[in-house]
Structure formats: C-alpha cells, structure tokens
Nucleic acid binder design. Sequence first.
RNA 1: GGAAGGGUGCCCGAGUGGCUAAAGGGGGCGGGCUGUAAACCCGCUGGCUUACGCCUACAUAGGUUCGAAACCUAUCCCUUCCA
Length: 409
Amino acid sequence: MEFKNNAFEILEERGFVMLTSHLEEIKKLLSDKPITFYLGIDPTADDLHIGHFFALQMFKILQDCGHKGVLLLGGATAMIGDPSFRNDMRRLITREEVDRNAREISGILHRFIDVDGDNPAIVVNNADWIRPKQYVDFMREVGVHFNVAKMLAAECYKNRLKEGGLTFFEMGYMLMQAYDFVYLNDKYDCIFQIGGSDQWGNILAGVELSRKMANKDGKERPVMVGMSCPLLTKMDGTKMGKTEKGVLWVNRDKTSVFDCFQYFSNVFDEDVERLLRFFTKLPIIEIIGLCKDDIVKAKRLMAFEVTKKIHGEEEALKAQETAKQLFSGGDATDAPTEEIQIENGASVVELLAKTSIVKSKREAREFIEAGAILIDNKQVASIDETLDKNKTEFLVKKGKKTFLKVIIK
RNA sequence: GGAAGGGUGCCCGAGUGGCUAAAGGGGGCGGGCUGUAAACCCGCUGGCUUACGCCUACAUAGGUUCGAAACCUAUCCCUUCCA
C-alpha cells in the first residue's frame, strides 16, 4: 500500500481531533512514515453501536493512509467495565458472554476497516495477555507506577466519587488499559493510541506508563502518543444513537437498515454538516455549500451515505427507496413487514396488538383515539373499526414515521 | 467504629396514616404547524382489560392498623460530621 503523509490533516479537517498528548510529535510521526496505532473496543455487547462505528472511521482513515492498525478487543477489560464518566458500576458480564461478544464483533469488523488486503488490521484480544497475569506480578510491574491521588483527581472518575465511590476493582481498569498500550509497543511497535474522548484518561495513563516502564530489552521506549476524538453527540449535547427501540446498532438483525436510514434522516439540521464531515469523503467546501443551499437535500444525502457505510450500497438504496415511497403516501415492497394470524374481519385493535408496534390492546386504543393510526392511508376513526374482510395485506402507519406492512396468514 | 440525615415511578423531586397509581418538572410517545428537522402549542405517559375492575409498585424483610409510601423492628445501601 502506498503511504500518504496527510493523515493528520485529514483527521483534523474532518473533525476527529479533540485532544492530543503531543500535538507536534503526532503530526510528525504521521507524516514521516507508516506507524502502528491502536484502538480498543470492549466487547460488552455482541454488536457495535454507532459510537464504535464513529471511532472506526478514524481507524480507517489512518489505515487508508498506510498506517498499520491494531484493533484491540478488550476481553479482559470488559470483565471489569470502564468506570470512566459513569454514575454507577457496570453490570458484570460473564467470561463466556465476553468471549462470545468478542467473536461476534470480530466477525463484523471487516465491514468498517480492512482486515484483509495489503494493509490488514491486526485484531488482538487483551484477554490473551492480561487474564494469565499473576496479581502480585501485575501490581509490582504496573501498579507501582500509579498514583491514587492523581487518579482520583481525574475528571472521568468525578461522577463515581460524587455518587458514592469507586471500587478498587474498577480502578484496576485504567491499569489494564495502560498496560495494553505498553504491551502492544513491545509486541507490535505500536506507538499511537486513538479513542473517544471518554477514553482520554485511559489513553493518557498508557502514554505515561510507557515513560515509566522500561521495554522488554531494558532499552528506552520510543515516544508513545495518544489522541482522542470527540464523542458523537447531537447539537443539544446528548449522545447520538438512541432510537425509540433502543440503541442504534450496526447489525441489521438488531437495527434494520430502514431504521438506521430513518435515524439519520431525522437528525437536527445543525448536525448534518458534522455528520457529512465524519462519514463521507466529500470536500469540506462542498459540504458547507450543500448545507447552506438546501439543508433538506443535504440531510437526505448524509442519511444515505451513512447508511451505505454501515450496511452497504445495495441495502442503503433499498432503504432510501422504501422511505421515499412510504412518505409520499405510497406502498413499498420493502417496507418493514410482519406476518400475523388473525380472524377474518377482526377489529383494528386486535390487529395492532398482534404486531410489534403496539404493546397491548389498551395501547392500541390509546393510539387510535389520538388519531395516530392510519391503515392503507386512511385514518382509523374509532376503536370499533374492523378490517376489510377481503384483504390479507394492510399498510399500517403509526404516528408520522412508523410504517408496518402486515400480512395475514 | 460513633453521631446525624437520607433511599419515592425512565430521571429529578413533592408527599409523613385513608381524598395516592402517588403533585411538579425533565425525558419519551401522540396530535397540530413544518421539511420525515428544530422551536412553539395541545394531549398521553406503571401493566392488563370494551367496561365494572384486577395486578404490580415508594430500598429489602417482617410487624402495628379496618387501612401504610407514610408508624415500629431488623437488614442493606448512600450522604455529612467525628475516629
């Protein structure tokens, strides 16, 4: 792969650079020659959410410039759970769960970063080197370099300290992540760590640890550096990626392509420009122009491009077409569909209750009374209304944005 | 280890024997206006039920009482002060 020396400029103009441990050093390292960098993801779930996807963009940009990427799955760290910026302790997950999650995640990584080809990412799991570590050895080697007073002063633990304290167990998290960086340096000559801004404390801990721990041959370590990207937030400051159904996942069986497309079609106007910067390769000037000229069009383009990046072009096109048809009052072959069994000529309430868009008959009535239910584009006027006996397929609309094609078996 | 205060619904927070499925706010959902956006206005917001109603819920477990989120006892957790 051809080396490109402008990785830092790209990251900067696309808005990925938030904090750096050594700004000048990083610029120099990234423009001199290919280096090895790493990004860590804790397998706390069997899927990636949009925040991971965002961090992986950064990974891909570096990779495309010819730098060598190490993707670390935190099979050890996930067993503790990062306490950074949390109010409470994370629910503990079992070793089996963590291992299964790690397998699932490594199976979908290829959609976002290169894992084959001429500059493939190295996928590693810190369970391999941290789980076998002996406690006393670890404390002597790594723990000795950590100052508790300094750790407690860190912004990322403030919530925990305010809300009732931090367990010793969780404080071990930072030691482990810091050690990962040093370990990856010994093994792969990794000298650059990237991550979300919530990871900044842990990234810095690794940078500092690298200065304190001699390398495996007793030689001095090269300068190791870190950088964080902003968190993917909306203009009101809240995190992006929460949908009506829960977290916005990247896997289509957890969050459908249509829902993904819809999510991005409905973001605030103010967020469109940033999202275009993050997730497309369009020149910045063009992006700014687009948003200024026609924000609605820019938003549509962005929703399509992001969906394409997550699910591929074919699926994104389908979702786009489906949305277009549904919102213009038509039917759509690819609309979200559910098959149910119901008596001929049953009431609308019964039909709704059998689908996933309402939870119970009571709720179905509530929606009908609020005028929120349309069947085949006709508003359901009363809770006593029954279905057309001659049809086996209905297009149900709940509210302005929820569509469901119901087929009666 | 001691003392005082506290734990209420998704979140914040009022409530100190019946009028409490629990004020008020936030969030969420639905309606109107728009552009499938925001802002704004209106409605809904523990679950099930056509309905009468039933079930579950004010940290946990017991108790007092016709009746408890509220009173008592024990347990757990948190906050502040002292050690």
